[in-house]
Design a protein around this nucleic acid. Structure first.
Lengths: 156, 156
DNA sequence: CGGTTTGTTCGGTCAATACCGAACACTACG
DNA sequence: CGTAGTGTTCGGTATTGACCGAACAAACCG
């Protein structure tokens, strides 16, 4: 892997680390987006990323669990291959949607705690709930529109 | 602080820890959303959260820097007060918007690396770029619509 | 049934960092 | 100027967790 690609992969690592995944998981995603061919075995990844088998192994499992990458089993071959999921971005977008719902629920919970308090006290939490509720309703519509555009553009 | 509120505050700590802030910062935000009065001094926070002055101090500074809370200086008083920003949720939403732009830029960067490669190789990154571009364009519109709703509801 | 290739699990190490207590700085007022 | 009251900075501690190497397991071949 040349220096520029290594940099690209490292940037991915840093980005995904900032979003809650591990750096290694981010690196794998980055690499799977630029590698040739697009599917890679564990051995390929060990070599390309210069990481240990064990680190790659656990990172791969996590990413598969999150549906961010797909495991490709070739019949007759011992090796498994991995590739970036075609819907990985909508997946992670949905995960963010879920965070909005968490926030809305937190606000609801707080409002029950302040049930006896005057309106002015409760306003902070009502604002929080309503905003996250609004966004949680709008996000799926955005996804639908994106699917539409994707089809128009001839992806998939 | 009673047990239920402590739980609420702790939930906030965990939530914000999962988004990249520290647990203490999350606890402060949680507390500032349910406390009475809505503005609190450092001493109030030290007592309410049972944390050290130093931890509170650095957490407050971070939150102020991020515009998630506001510092209220009362003339004639030595103490500073802090309260949850009225626009804290739009602030953090904008921060997420910025993450989309980062992703789009990462994709662009990758595409320059694959400039010589055939279309099929580049497709993964084009999809990534286009989706994040789409969302980065739509998010501000969502915020505008939310502002509208907020005004109708009589917040602000 | 050995032996080779592939993948997982485990123990240990190292780095990062959240938090604390204490020392230090600043401010306002007597 | 001195003294409370208020806020920041610093060193140390303890926890967390990402990563590695090696041992282990499992699958497939001769």
């Amino acid at each position: 892997m040349d220096e520029l690609k290594r940099q690209f992969v490292e940037d991915f690592g840093l980005y995904f680390e900032s979003t809650g995944l591990t750096r290694m998981e981010g690196r794998i995603i980055g690499w799977l987006l630029i590698c040739d061919p697009p599917h890679q075995s564990m051995g390929d990844l060990v070599e390309a990323l210069g990481a240990s088998k064990s680190s790659i192994s656990v990172a791969l499992r996590t990413l598969v669990t999150l549906y961010l990458i797909e495991q490709v089993r070739v019949p007759g071959e011992r090796r498994d291959y991995y590739r970036a999921s075609s819907d990985m971005w909508t997946r992670s977008f949905r995960a963010r949607m879920h965070q909005l719902i968490e926030l809305r629920d937190l606000a609801e919970h707080g409002l029950t705690l302040l049930a006896e308090m005057p309106k002015a006290q409760r306003k902070r939490l009502e604002l929080m709930r309503d905003m996250n509720d609004f966004l949680a309703q709008e996000f799926p519509k955005l996804l639908d529109r994106w699917d539409e555009i994707k089809r128009e553009k001839g992806y998939d």
